Simulated assay, not measured.
Amino acid sequence: MALKVGDELPNFVAIDTNGAAFDSSKLIGKQPVVIYFYPKDNTPGCTAQACSFRDNYQIFKDLGAEVIGISADSVTSHVKFKSKYQLPFILLSDADKKLRKLFGVPNSFIFLPGRQTYVVDHNGIIQMVFNSVSSTIHIEKAIQILKNLNQK
C-alpha cells in the first residue's frame, strides 16, 4: 500500500554514501524532509533532477528542510555521482528496493523505477506526494509546499 498525504512516515534504515547506516528517526519528526526517489545515477533526467536539488539546496536549508535522494544504485555508484556533481544532500542506496516498496513508489513505463517526491513536515506527516517523469518540476513543487508549511 502506497504512502499518501496525511500518513505518518515510517522509520527506515538505509546505507548512505559514507557506508554508514542512515536512520530516518534522526531527522523525521524533527524537521521537514524532502525525500525523492529517482531511477538511476548518471542518467540525463536523474542528473538534471539531482543538480536542480543541488542548485536549490540553500533554499531547502533556509526553509528548515533536509533533502534525501534514493535509488537502487550501489553505494559506490552514489559516491561517484555525489562527487561528480557536488551534491550536498544525503543519497541512500536502496539496492534491495525495500524502501521503494515501503513507500509504494510505482514503476514508470512498466519496468523503469518511478520518480516520486515526498515532503514530510516537522511532525513526520507526509504533506506532498508528487509523481512525474519530469525531473525538475519536483523541486518547484517541494519548495512551494515547504513555503506553505512555514506560513502556518
Rank of each mutant, 00 (worst) to 15 (best):
G29F: 04
Q31H: 12
Q31F: 07
Q31V: 10
Q31E: 15
P32K: 00
P32A: 05
Y36L: 07
Y36G: 06
Y36R: 09
Y38T: 09
Y38L: 11
P39C: 10
D41G: 06
D41L: 06
P44F: 08
G45F: 05
G45S: 12
T47F: 02
T47H: 01
A48V: 11
Q49H: 08
A50V: 04
A50D: 09
A50R: 05
C51V: 10
C51K: 07
F53I: 08
F53W: 06
R54V: 03
D55R: 03
N56L: 05
N56Q: 13
Y57V: 03
Y57R: 01
Q58V: 07
F60T: 05
F60M: 05
K61T: 13
L63Q: 04
L63N: 00
L63M: 00
G64W: 05
G64V: 10
G64R: 06
A65Q: 08
E66L: 12
I68T: 05
I68P: 01
G69W: 01
I70E: 04
I70G: 01
D73T: 02
S74D: 06
S74A: 07
V75E: 08
T76Y: 07
S77C: 03
S77E: 00
S77F: 04
H78L: 02
H78Q: 04
V79H: 00
V79Q: 13
K80R: 11
K82H: 07
K84G: 06
K84L: 08
K84F: 04
K84I: 05
Y85D: 02
P88S: 00
I90V: 08
I90E: 01
L91V: 01
L92Y: 03
S93Q: 02
D94C: 05
D94Q: 03
D96V: 07
D96Y: 02
K97F: 03
K97T: 13
K97D: 10
K98P: 03
K101Y: 02
K101C: 04
K101H: 10
K101E: 14
K101P: 00
K101Q: 13
L102A: 01
L102I: 07
F103Q: 05
G104A: 02
V105M: 00
P106L: 07
N107R: 09
N107D: 15
S108L: 13
I110L: 13
F111M: 14
L112R: 10
L112F: 08
P113Q: 06
P113H: 04
P113M: 03
P113K: 00
R115P: 07
Q116V: 14
Y118H: 09
Y118M: 07
V119L: 10
V120L: 04
V120D: 03
H122P: 09
H122E: 15
I125P: 09
I125W: 09
Q127N: 14
M128F: 11
V129Y: 10
V129C: 13
F130A: 14
F130T: 13
N131G: 13
S132N: 15
V133T: 14
S134F: 14
S134Q: 15
S135P: 15
T136I: 15
T136Y: 10
I137Q: 15
H138M: 12
E140S: 15
K141F: 05
A142W: 04
A142C: 15
A142F: 07
Q144N: 15
Q144S: 15
Q144R: 14
Q144L: 14
K147E: 13
N148Y: 04
N148L: 13
N150T: 14
N150S: 14
Q151F: 10
